[in-house]
Design a protein around this nucleic acid. Structure first.
Lengths: 242, 242
DNA sequence: GGCCTTCTGTTACATCATTGACACCCAACT
DNA sequence: AGTTGGGTGTCAATGATGTAACAGAAGGCC
């Protein structure tokens, strides 16, 4: 209880980069690249090569010391680490616009998260089909979760219902919750949670925008947009300015 | 160029918490709470009070030293800091499912980001109305941006078009880009970017799920879900396990 | 008024993350 | 064979972030 022991001993920041590595590697794989060095891969992601090696270091060697990484080996290795070496059945609760958008987003399935159920309580929505899946009554959720062995649940209901939905998901056996509702969910031990709060992201962006506008006023009241220059993602990998 | 100077001198992590503070404060305000101490506010957000004070410290005093914060003062102060003391006109490019979901999400306007334009290139979509706004042809985007003084642009187009859209947004005068496409955009200086990559979030979640499943197997092959226990958001505030 | 409690602002410390440096490895070339 | 060039794994140093500790202000109470 002293140590964070957040499931594993891998740092937060590293975990967030793994998907990026995987994504880029799949892209390389698709165009037939066989080998890739830490420097090449890192540069294409705007991070330092040492960081990439450092990250990989948590999981033991991916290649013989002296040679670059082999894309064909690395992709499945990363998939296994992330836990998507086999599909992770996923359900969506809340078939509003966002829920439907997600259910329609076929990339989810391609990336290892096949949607095996969409649920709502609104009778108007129940029965509608999205990509072959009917929107089901919320009551059916536990049964479907068990049948399909769903592990991850996405919450796209209004904030006031989110906690209840989460509770029922956990009870049904869901192990990871992806929450789009702007609420702090309380979950029992042994359940992972990720909040995807878009308003927060927008406000962080707004802060930066404000700073930019201010600096424009200060530095040159009648200036045009600055000269172009590359910029790199940092932080949790979602933000940048310059 | 040595220092990160990411727009302002406020740390990343702090910026990401500001919206959470504001959200919670608005909630308190709505139920008539007048004063709130750093401890109360911090506890309700599952963070340490010292961190909250530390964060506020970047922006100078919000209250007389000896007394708790006044909600009525703090809310507008935070809004000003974040840059939403007045509405930030926002456009959406890409009227697919996700774009429509966002356009429908009235909370955006409530939180300070009124959608003043939705654009697409698909003739089938152009003309459809969403909450009173017609989906417009992409060609009209620059004009609308100037007319409405739009500052933030949301990109919800397929990845392969995202860079082009971003370029046109910047040219039109957009200062902040909220990108849902899984691409690394290259932007000129003086434009803020936030990537909202849902697949990345899902995979980070999957990693945790995998860890949980593994630990269940190890610790007690036939164990039930563990005893309930509170859990706290950490990292960029989006993840937690336990 | 003087004391006590509660609270903030601020500074110092501990922890985590990123970056740089280097030893060793492997293949290719001389 | 020896040597050169590029590569990874690893560790140490730097930088950023989170946490605790504390001095001093404001009001309530005696």
């Amino acid at each position: 209880m002293r140590k964070k022991r957040k499931g594993c001993d891998v740092p937060e920041a590293t975990i967030h980069r793994l998907p990026l590595y995987l994504e880029k590697l799949k892209l390389l794989q698709a165009i037939g690249v066989e080998d890739v060095s830490s420097r090449q891969l890192a540069e294409s992601l705007d991070i330092k090569a040492s960081q990439l090696r450092h990250d990989f270091h948590y999981f033991g060697g991916f290649s013989r010391p002296g040679r670059p990484y082999q894309v064909e080996k690395l992709v499945p290795a990363l998939e296994k680490i992330i836990g998507i070496d086999e599909p992770v059945p996923t359900i969506i609760v809340g078939a509003g616009h966002l829920g439907q958008a997600l259910a329609n987003y076929q990339n989810l399935a391609l990336q290892g998260f096949p949607v095996c159920g969409i649920f709502d309580v609104n009778p108007r929505l129940i029965g509608l089909e999205i990509r072959g899946q009917p929107i089901r009554d919320m009551e059916e959720m536990p049964r479907v979760v068990k049948e399909k062995n769903a592990l991850i649940g996405v919450i796209t209901v209004p904030a006031q219902y989110a906690q209840e939905v989460a509770d029922r998901m956990v009870e049904a056996g869901i192990v990871g919750i992806f929450n789009f509702a702007p609420t702090d969910l309380k979950l029992p031990e042994g359940v992972a949670l990720r909040n995807e709060r878009m308003a927060v992201g927008l406000m962080a962006l707004s802060f930066r925008v404000k700073c930019i506008l201010e600096s424009r006023l200060q530095h040159s009241p009648a200036d045009e947009v600055g000269p172009p220059g590359e910029s790199a993602a940092e932080g949790d990998g979602n933000d940048q300015v310059s």
